[in-house]
Amino acid sequence: MNSPFRALFGRRSTQVERYLGVLIVIYSAVVGFQNPRFLSLETVFDIVHEGAPTMILAIGVLLVLVSGGIDVSFPAVAICSAYVSIKLMWVFGLDALWFMAPVSIAIGLLLGLVNALLIHFLKLPTLIVTLGTMSVYRGFMAVTLGTSQYPVATMPKSLAEFGLANIVSVDGEGSSYGLSVFFPIVVALFAVTWFILYHTMLGRAVFAMGSDEEAASRVGVNLLRTRLFVYGYTGALAGMAGLMYFAAMQNVDPVALQGFELMVIAAVVIGGAKLTGGEGTILGTFLGVLLFQLFQSTLVQLGLASTWASFFFGSVLLFSLAMIYYRQRKADQRNLVFRIG
């Protein structure tokens, strides 16, 4: 089979990817039927703009899941790094993205490394460890820096402009819209992550560790170093995503994104990443987040209040999970594989 998909990605599509693709097409068709304005470039651009921070966070989550762990601290890391970088910049009396971005990424990296060290040495469920660090990061920041919000009037100008900047602008009837600068950033990060995961030893080690930790260590994978990379990279991505989130919202809110971690993890899991590690694709992650974002921003166009978003997303999530794991259960029964749980 030489499908266009294979030509583009160099592999066969996974079942989950096909399923999600079909789901998204059907959903878009339904919404488009109800509201023809939906099927427009503007909608696409909107979704790119709104969904970009989530996409970047999701890349990190994918990496962690592939490595066999789970991380719930990344929204806390995102908010903390971005907020601290802004506060720090004001100390120097600056207002510049070139300061905020590297600092925020560096702080994210640092917090991620802390996660990695704790996970490696405590040898406990990563969920519980990162639940602890999540609270420590958020709590510590709030206690030391306060929780003042900076709406668009008082937030750094450079950040507000970053949120509105477009690389392409289109003048429509009455309003103009454009493709956000977030787009190339997300594309670049997808490409870099893809390259690392599939074309470097580090990436292969991440898969190996997630697939069978004991075997990986037996053939000489340095588990500590691999974990430092996984959680550090995730933290750095979160640092970037935090700034982009503030920019997109046009509001610096240090208590935002609480509870968001579960949504992003859910999106990545829908995309086919397994909690048992070693499995997950970047395309699947992209589709999972896209689906989530569609529910978030387009239910209104179906004539439903936005309060239905969680209901729909939760239902799709449960259905997908049941499908994925029931299939595995049947295969296990056939092959006489017995699993814990």
Binding site: R204, A208, D212, E214, A215, A216, G278
Partner: peptide, 17 residues
């Protein structure tokens, strides 16, 4: 102690690389 999800070539060359 092989990695099921990785390819044959990857498994063989893993340690060397």
């Amino acid at each position: 102690a092989l990695f099921d999800q990785l390819s044959v070539a990857e498994n063989i060359a893993f340690s060397v690389l």
